[in-house]
Design a protein around this nucleic acid. Sequence first.
DNA 1: TTCAAAGTCAAACGCGTGTTTGAAACACCT
DNA 2: AGGTGTTTCAAACACGCGTTTGACTTTGAA
Lengths: 228, 228
Amino acid sequence: MPARPAPANDTDAASRMLQAAAGLYAEKGIGKVSLRELTARAGVNLAAVSYHFGSKDGLAEAVFETLSRRVNGKRIADLDAYLAGLGTRRPALDEVLSLFVAPYLETGNEQQGVLLARFIVQHRLEPSALTRKVIRKHFDPMAKRFIAALALACPHLEVRDISWRYLFTVSAVVLTLTDTTKNNRIARLSGGKADTSRTDELRVALLDFLRGGIWGDAPSANGSRRRR
Amino acid sequence: MPARPAPANDTDAASRMLQAAAGLYAEKGIGKVSLRELTARAGVNLAAVSYHFGSKDGLAEAVFETLSRRVNGKRIADLDAYLAGLGTRRPALDEVLSLFVAPYLETGNEQQGVLLARFIVQHRLEPSALTRKVIRKHFDPMAKRFIAALALACPHLEVRDISWRYLFTVSAVVLTLTDTTKNNRIARLSGGKADTSRTDELRVALLDFLRGGIWGDAPSANGSRRRR
DNA sequence: TTCAAAGTCAAACGCGTGTTTGAAACACCT
DNA sequence: AGGTGTTTCAAACACGCGTTTGACTTTGAA
């Protein structure tokens, strides 16, 4: 059990491993990174993982704990600030959605968005003790805050509807972000007219879709669902 | 190289393996099934996989080839029938969406929906030669048909918008379906008010969301996006 | 300078995996 | 009944993985 010095700089072995892990997770997927590959990239001995983090899972937990705490802490803080600035006025759906989507689309920090998305998708596909722990601790509270904010922004909807639509929103965002490689599916299907790797375009398209989906005012088959 | 007899019944070793594979893929995830576990459930010797399917990947390919061909063939056929019955009238967005979503939500065949969803999500998270092949062969053509149909149903939208929204739609559907276990996330977040395991409820909520998202007529932040 | 703690390193261990082997059992036609 | 091609089976193989070991090097305070 090592005594971790509090201020670790970037040339630290542990920091290099964390960086290498984050990079490889984002590039290849969380489950497809071997310790030999990881330590090679970090320029560190194989045994260093066990020494500094206890195990492979310990390293992964450190990566996602850090990431989740930072990202969701900022999301909650930004949401609070926005709501506080409103006074008694109703929050705008667009603004709430923008705040939610922000960490996935932050320009200049694409790796963070992809990593975050991969983590969520991984948890949905093959939940593990690790992902469950991080989700419950860092994502569930944030989700509840945003569901509450969405309810304020959409007074015509019940909490049940909001919950469903929040879930669909998350799904659309994270799965889209896991396909940002060249020749991604949308580029292929649209003949290049749309492309996940053009982030600005993606943001606009995504917000258009989510706004409509959450607000929920479109003509239905029997025309009975008009409410506003 | 075995000579596969054309009519294979359910007590066939190969059929039993296919069934066991499909079941285990749906239950545990595609990447988490070992051949020893699979052959044990199928009541078959370990070497039978190599003998009948060449390799582990060969078995997986057989599973998803069959599933994808059947499901997407039916989707295309149903869409064609619907469009043909319309004559020159404009297709209804709700109907097109229902046809698209159908194989994921077919009652009495839940395993199919989950398996399908898992396959798509797996491909997005960690694409492999296998998933790429099946996607290009069986899903891309179907997707293009539905995008075209959606364009007919939504004449106010450009193909680019439709492509984006189709992608978001797929994302919302498949990722939602990978979390249908007890104590799923939406049940936890909504305090039980919504629950992925109640299929009828899920269908309604999903179609409400998708209709609104695709049609895209909701008040935006600056109020400028009103078009119909 | 000394010495114990912290960190690094090459090597090996144990385990589960997909795959292969070669013999045995079976099926089916002549 | 004989014989050929198909299918099953237990056993072993080769490999990559996460982890552990024990010796070596570095660090930093007394």
